[in-house]
């Protein structure tokens, strides 16, 4: 068991190195770099010292050195906890990510909890009452959720909230609370804003999960062990939850590990951009657009780490709940 975990962690390290390297290459692929963009801007403003400023920056960030040297320097510093500096913000990547991390995690956990707390009971209901009116309604809504992209739904809800309800719902806080210290008022204000991303994730995120839960459970309920449990005199509720759902839910653990955990940081970047949420997703998209390579690279490495850790955790949890997959 310990051996297995160590081996998996070893693979994970190799994977992270590879992904960071490939990621770095891809960011470098477009012609020019952040500083060429900046030079253009400075020239356009007629700044005379532009050339020398840029040269200084280029030396400072090591952009004049060969690609491999750049990558190695960044990677070694990364291990020391120095993720480099963002060009566009002219601040350390660590600080930039740090200040958005809390909100990102809060939002992601809220999303995750809402999604799962809704999806599993609805999926179970939908399967147990197959073809009932309730099942038809749930099925219709989940297909709409699967079909509508999150950002489109975000736009529709924004329009509704601003035009019809006349509420300021962009971001996570109203203007007066953005820099205010934490207080009861600020929490209430947060909740007032949080419902929109929560609703969007409830509609778009639960749809797929409901369908998977429903399908798995229907298949499991046709298994002889469910009938056998009923024949032992269990009440219907226990037959469904302790036997059928207990077995049908296992595949969802894999989804939790491979999608939910990386999603905590990556989130739905498009929805966050539309709603102007201070999370890491929009920062990452922007860094790619602006060739802000250390910021982008750091984000990529973190997404990879979360994905790998998520998968490992999912495998361990699955082995724990399902004796058939116990690791040798």
């Amino acid at each position: 068991m310990v051996n297995y975990i160590l081996r998996r962690l070893g693979y994970a390290v190799i994977m992270i190195v590879l992904v960071s390297f490939v990621g770095f290459c891809i960011i470098k692929l477009p012609p020019g770099d952040f500083l060429t963009q900046k030079l253009e801007q400075l020239r356009a403003r007629g700044d005379r010292s532009a050339e020398s400023q840029i040269e200084a920056l280029r030396a400072k960030y090591g952009l004049d050195r060969p690609f491999m040297v750049q990558y190695t320097t960044w990677a070694v510093n990364f291990l020391k906890g120095d993720f480099g500096e963002s060009f566009q913000y002219e601040r350390p990547v660590k600080d930039l990510l740090g200040e958005r991390l809390t909100m990102t995690v809060v939002l992601a956990l809220a999303t995750l909890i809402i999604t799962w707390v809704l999806a599993i009971p609805l999926g179970v209901y939908s399967a147990v009452r197959q073809y009932s009116l309730g099942d038809q309604i749930i099925t219709t809504i989940s297909f709409i959720g699967i079909g509508i992209p999150g950002f489109l739904l975000a736009l529709i809800i924004l329009f509704f909230a601003i035009v019809v309800l006349n509420q300021d719902v962009l971001g996570l806080f109203s203007k007066e609370y953005i820099d205010a210290p934490w207080s009861v008022g600020k929490v209430i204000d947060l909740l007032k804003h949080l419902w929109i991303p929560a609703l969007i994730s409830a509609v778009t995120g639960t749809g797929g999960l409901i369908r998977i839960m429903r399908g798995n459970l229907l298949e499991t309920m046709g298994q002889p062990f469910v009938e056998a449990a009923r024949a032992r005199g269990l009440r219907n509720r226990d037959v469904i939850w302790k036997h059928a759902v207990r077995v049908a839910i296992n595949p969802l653990i894999v989804i939790l590990g491979s999608e939910a955990l990386p999603g905590i940081i990556g989130g739905n970047a498009l929805v966050s951009i539309v709603l102007n949420l201070p999370t890491i997703g929009p920062l990452f998209v922007d860094s790619l657009r602006r060739l802000d390579m250390y910021l982008a690279g750091t984000c990529i490495v973190f997404f990879t780490i979360l994905l790998l850790v998520g998968n490992l955790l999912a495998d361990l949890v699955l082995a724990w709940v399902d004796p058939r997959i116990r690791l040798e």
Binding site: P224, F225, E227, R230, A231, G233, R246, V247, P323, R324
Partner: peptide, 21 residues
């Protein structure tokens, strides 16, 4: 009470009549 308590039942598919977990 009758199911299991007064009338027991065993099934055709022993391979899948026990809950795997």
């Amino acid at each position: 009470q009758i199911r299991g308590g007064e009338i027991g039942m065993i099934f055709q598919e022993p391979m899948s009549s026990l809950t795997p977990v």
